[in-house]
Amino acid sequence: MKYIGKIPEELKYTKEHEWVKIESAHGVIGITDYAQHALTDIVFVELPQVGKKAGQFKPLCVVESVKSVSDIFAPVSGDVVEVNDNLSNNPEHVNQDPYGIGWIAKIKVFDESEVKNLMNAEEYKKYLEGLEH
């Protein structure tokens, strides 16, 4: 049976399985529970540099699991203002708590209207259910 995982109500989602939580013009970014499960055990997170300008749906950083390397895309455009340095030594936090201590980066959002290009929790759930396999 397909694993859907947790989908918190308050977050917005991308088709590439990232989430973002927007608060006071800043967005905290991570990958979804579904994504961490599909990736298997994460062994390395190549964090973006603070100051990097991220474009919506453009590559933000890279995660490596025991079996694959995958790109993580920015859900909204902005400047990276903070990264979760703990992941350098504890990449498994992404598996353990993808919406909490497994967050990846915080960005200063350029244009909050870009959020309309993202899915809410219900839409993301339907999207996951509609994926092949």
């Binding site: 599909a38 990736l39 298997t40 699991s65 079996k67 694959s68 994926l131 092949e132 396999h133």
Partner: peptide, 12 residues
């Protein structure tokens, strides 16, 4: 990855 119903699941 959506071809042949190729699983998105990496291990599969």
């Amino acid at each position: 990855e959506n071809l042949l119903e190729m699983p998105r699941d990496i291990l599969k």
